[in-house]
């Protein structure tokens, strides 16, 4: 192999070709389009101007949707972290024979279409949905509780979509920690909580941060949950891009918004890589520890 440095490139060629044609070139198209102009009926007029970017930043409406997307993404990350760490830690500690079965349960949602999973919340949270139906039936409430078509419902939809990503990332990180380290800490006088706080938790942080990054990036680009479960004012940046590209045939402006989002996310990923190392995510994906 040492004498033939081109060999890895030959092996990688099919993947690199696919990435180049299916990702790099389309992204370049999006960037080029972002400098173009929209004609009166929706035609694309080739140009090189920064009007689309100026429009995005001059008017607080568009950055405000971006900020609200980032806020929802952070809320989702926080909730995924809190709700995801507990089962991941349980999987790490348990010696139960049911562990493989429980792990499959975590993966189970992936076997059902994302759209179906999202739509199913309407039957659970709606005015005539399961929860309101039961609460009304047992006279616990007099009128249906408004649980659907608000930010809470959107975050609920995002949680059920993204929680497995967080659990698996944390679990892979935890699984690589030698359990005898915590035992050693306890033998030196630490309580159970102290051993977790001083040994296990710090060692699991790479997995935590990888999970947070994945959840954050996926939330920022999400489109369906706000559309199906959101109410007035719960739009996220992907919905806005859809409206500009599809609704008004304004591909140049839609491309400019997409480029802004892409640059922002790339900056976040770059920063993460600088301080945490992007390899942690690949460890999780390849199930290494």
């Amino acid at each position: 192999m040492k004498n033939k440095p081109w060999k890895p490139w030959v092996l990688l060629a099919p993947s690199l070709t696919a990435v180049f044609f299916l990702l790099v070139i389309p992204v370049c198209f999006v960037i080029v389009y972002s400098f173009w102009l929209r004609g009166p009926s929706g035609q694309d007029i080739p140009a090189f101007q920064f009007g689309n970017y100026a429009k995005f930043f001059k008017d607080f409406f568009y950055p405000s949707i971006l900020l609200s997307t980032l806020r929802v993404a952070l809320e989702t990350v926080f909730l995924c972290l809190v709700l995801g760490y507990i089962p991941a830690y349980f999987f790490y500690r348990t010696e139960s024979r049911l562990k493989p079965f429980l792990m499959v349960l975590v993966m189970l949602p992936f076997w059902i279409s994302f759209i179906i999973r999202t739509l199913s919340w309407i039957n659970i949270l709606g005015d005539s949905g399961l929860i309101n139906h039961l609460l009304l039936k047992f006279n616990i409430i007099n009128a249906p509780m408004p649980m659907l078509y608000n930010e809470g419902a959107v975050i609920m939809g995002l949680l059920q979509y993204l929680l497995p990503f967080m659990i698996l990332n944390i679990y892979v990180s935890l699984d690589g920690i030698d359990k005898s380290l915590a035992e050693a800490a306890k033998s030196l006088g630490c309580t159970e909580w102290q051993a977790f706080k001083e040994v296990t938790l710090p060692l699991s942080l790479p997995g935590v941060s990888a999970g947070c990054l994945l959840v954050f990036v996926l939330t920022c680009g999400t489109y369906l949950p706000p559309m199906i479960l959101g109410g007035p004012g719960n739009e996220m940046i992907a919905n806005l891009i859809f409206k500009r590209v599809i609704g008004t045939l304004d591909w140049p402006f839609g491309s400019a918004i997409s480029t802004v989002l892409m640059v922002l996310l790339m900056t976040i990923v770059y920063t993460y890589n600088r301080y945490m190392g992007i390899s942690q995510i690949f460890k999780t994906l390849s199930n290494e520890s």
Binding site: R38, P40, S41, F60, F61, S64, I65, P232, G233, E235, L240, K243, G247, T248, D250
Partner: peptide, 19 residues
């Protein structure tokens, strides 16, 4: 309606978003 499409569609988006 087509003459004002972009302007009104964007205004409508703002109203829906509450901004």
């Amino acid at each position: 309606w087509n003459k004002h499409q972009i302007e009104w569609a964007e205004k409508w988006d703002r109203i829906m978003a509450g901004r």
